[in-house]
Design a binder for these strands. Structure first.
Length: 286
DNA sequence: AGTTGCACCTGGCTGC
DNA sequence: TGCAGCCAGGTGCAAC
């Protein structure tokens, strides 16, 4: 499911429920998700207090009061829901609980449940001292909602890249947190073809082009709007209170193959790039 | 070094 | 109604 706006939405929900609380009991219901759980996972977490709930790229990071940091990734279909004691959420029935893989019972009485049908998500425990140098994080790129992200940064990152704009924007070692939907949406807003060479964002003298500025602005804009909407719910994404995000109603290009472009009336096309579907308008995306 | 293709899983939708 | 086939928000690794 989840790109930056969905992960950020989940982070906010978990932060409100977990920060300051102690993990009174942890249950791990299967040996692995995408990867095996760490050794003695539940035991090592039990009794720890959650001091902060952060996001880096599409990772959720819980700072604990012990020596470890809990790293969580939602993969394609992972979600968290928060249940208050004695008040299970209606509709969270047997079918759904089949894929409840981890539960955290908090000292507040709330229960946090991780559900992931496809099991592409994973959880890791990393010593805090090794966090920055850890292979999961040491090559991650710039945060697109951070202060340092702008047209100049984008042009610098993409300089000399012969790959497509689409592929470069999906590369997490360059920019952290964009996925298939928001890359398509940002390129459409910026009026840029996903097939362009990534290096086209820099002028011959290396300065950022107007295109770079437009694209950086479009990326920030679409991410901010999506976060404000609680993310996009296609199949699996839920806020931690069970509510749907609603940004999917604001897609201008994603999954609209065959429809007229909302901006120019041109035909929205679907192509495949790097094995992923790309939606774009041949009329106004140049 | 940079890219592509495939694998990892389940479930939902489409079309026969 | 049933079932086969295709598709899906991500990422890591093997192969070119």
């Amino acid at each position: 499911m989840p790109e930056l706006p969905e992960v950020e939405t989940v982070r906010r929900g978990l932060e409100a429920a977990m920060v300051g609380a102690q993990l009174a009991a942890v249950e791990q219901r299967r040996p692995d998700l995408r990867f095996p759980f760490p050794e003695r996972f539940a035991e090592r977490l039990t009794g720890q207090r959650v001091e902060a709930l952060r996001r880096r790229a599409k990772y959720l990071i819980a700072d604990l009061d012990g020596t470890d940091v809990l790293v969580m990734h939602l993969g394609m279909s992972g979600s968290f829901r928060i249940e208050q004691a004695r008040a299970p959420i209606l509709g969270a029935g047997a079918k759904n609980s089949l894929h409840d893989h981890v539960t955290f019972d908090l000292s507040t009485g709330a229960r946090v449940v991780y559900n992931d049908p496809r099991r592409f998500g994973f959880m890791q425990l990393i010593p805090r001292s090794e966090f920055a140098a850890h292979p999961l994080f040491n090559k991650i790129g710039i945060e697109p909602l951070g202060d340092e992200f702008d047209g100049a940064a984008l042009a610098r990152l993409f300089a000399g890249k012969t790959t497509s704009l689409k592929a470069a924007l999906l590369d997490q070692t360059l920019i952290a947190g964009l996925g298939n939907i928001y890359v398509c949406e940002a390129l459409h807003r910026a009026g840029l073809s996903p097939r362009r060479v990534a290096a086209c964002l820099a002028c011959n003298d290396g300065t950022p082009s107007a295109r770079a500025t437009r694209l950086a602005r479009a990326i920030r804009e679409v991410l901010n709007e999506a976060v404000a909407a609680g993310g996009s719910s296609l199949r699996d994404h839920r806020k931690t209170d069970g509510a749907l995000g609603y940004f999917q109603h604001s897609f201008r290009i994603y999954s609209r193959a065959g429809e007229p472009c909302a901006r120019c009336g041109g035909l929205v096309r679907r192509i495949t790039q790097a094995g992923r579907a790309t939606f774009y308008c041949g009329g106004c995306q140049r």
